[in-house]
Amino acid sequence: MNIKLSFLSALATGAILFACSSAGSKTTLPNDETLQPIQLFNGEDINDWTPKIRLHEVGENYANTFRVEDGLLKVRYDGYDDFNKQYGHLAYNTPYSYYLLRVEYRFVDEQVQGGEGWAWRNSGAMLHGQDPNTMLKEQDFPISIEGQFLGGNGKDERTTSNLCTPGTNVVIDGTLFTPHCTSSTSKTYHGDEWVTADFLVLGDSLIQHILEGEVVLEYNKPQIGGGNVEHYDPAQKTDGKLLDQGFIYLQSESHPIDFRKVELYDLAPYKDNKAKLDEIIQKLL
C-alpha cells in the first residue's frame, strides 16, 4: 500500500479516512481539547521499563545492555564476550490497547561477536506483548507482534517496519497469515540515519505500520498461535486467542541501536466513539 497525504483504510468492518502530516507534541482535537503524547522514554532513565534477556531472570539488565547516555536509550554489547543468543527485550511497564506509537531509531557501530547473520542491523518494537513477568529464564522472545526494524548495507534493498510473529499469527487480506515474517513496502534506510516508525494499533481490529506518511503494512486480528518462540510457559500460549492489548517492548538482537524518541498517543478513551476516533487519527497523522 502506498498512500500519501490521505488514505482510505479498513477499520474492522468499516472504513476511515486518514490525513497524513507531521505530528507535533500537541494535537488539537475536534472539541479543542489537546492530546499529549506519553513519553515512554523520558530521556533520562529506564525506570519505567523492565528488561528481560534470555538466560537471565526478569528485571536483570545483563551487562548494562539497555542504558541511557547523552539523552538516548542505547542498546550496547561492550560487556559481552559472545552474544550467545541472549536476545533481549525491554518492556514498558504499562500495557496499552488502542494507540499510536512513534519510535525514532538508528543503527550504529558493529554487530557483537556471536550475533547471527540475520540479526545484523536488526531490532524491533514488539506490540501486544505478554507480561514480561510471565517470561521464563530461557525464553527467547515474548509472545507478541513484532514491528521489525532493519537497516541497509549501503547498496542492497532491505525493507523496514516489517512484520514478524513470535508465537502469534495475524489476518492479512481476510486470510490467516502463518509464516513467521513478511516484508513491508518501505524503502531502504542505509547508514546511521534516524528513522521514524509509527504504529497505529486499534485493539485486535487493525494494526498499521507507517513510515513518512505511508502505510507500508497492514493487518487485522492479531492472535496467539504458531511457533517461532521457544522455552515459554505453555499457560501463556492459548492458540487462537485474539490480542487486543499488551506490553510494548524494544529489542536487543546483537546489533547496537539508539532510540531518541519512544512516545505514545493513548486512543483508548475514544475507541467507542468512532467519529471522534477517526478525527483524532487524522490529526495525529
Rank of each mutant, 00 (worst) to 15 (best):
S25F: 00
D32I: 01
I280R: 02
G246A: 15
D156M: 14
I207Y: 03
V58C: 09
G59K: 11
V195S: 14
L202G: 01
K241C: 08
G167W: 00
K237S: 14
D258R: 09
E214W: 07
I281S: 02
I280K: 03
M126S: 06
K155T: 08
E263V: 01
A63V: 04
A125F: 09
S252A: 15
L217Q: 07
C181F: 15
H190A: 06
V68S: 04
K283P: 04
Y92I: 03
Y98D: 14
I145E: 02
L250H: 07
L267E: 07
G151R: 02
K137P: 04
W120M: 04
A125T: 13
S144A: 15
S25P: 02
Q251V: 02
S25E: 12
H190P: 04
Y265I: 09
Q148H: 03
T27C: 12
F83Q: 11
Q39M: 07
L150W: 00
S161E: 10
L206T: 10
D173H: 13
K74F: 00
N42I: 07
S6D: 15
I53A: 07
N162P: 03
L206V: 07
I207Q: 09
G191P: 05
Y80K: 03
E230F: 09
S9A: 11
D140P: 05
Q139P: 03
I53D: 04
Q39P: 03
N273S: 10
M135N: 09
I257H: 02
K155R: 05
W49C: 04
Y249D: 02
N169M: 15
F247H: 10
V103A: 15
G174Y: 11
S25D: 12
G154N: 04
S97K: 13
T27E: 11
Q236W: 06
D78S: 11
V215H: 06
F66S: 07
N93C: 12
D48F: 02
S161A: 14
R158K: 15
G154P: 03
K137Y: 06
I248Y: 08
E214Y: 05
V108A: 04
L200A: 02
Y270L: 08
D266T: 09
Y232C: 01
A235P: 00
L11Q: 01
S21H: 14
Q86S: 06
C20G: 14
L11V: 00
V229K: 05
S254C: 14
Y62R: 10
A125M: 11
T185Y: 09
Q245V: 02
Y96P: 09
D81K: 15
G71T: 07
V262E: 01
R158V: 13
H89I: 00
D244K: 07
E193V: 14
D173A: 13
Y105T: 10
Q139W: 02
T159C: 11
L243E: 06
P222Y: 06
T185L: 13
N2V: 12
L17N: 09
S205V: 05
F41V: 05
P37D: 05
Q139M: 01
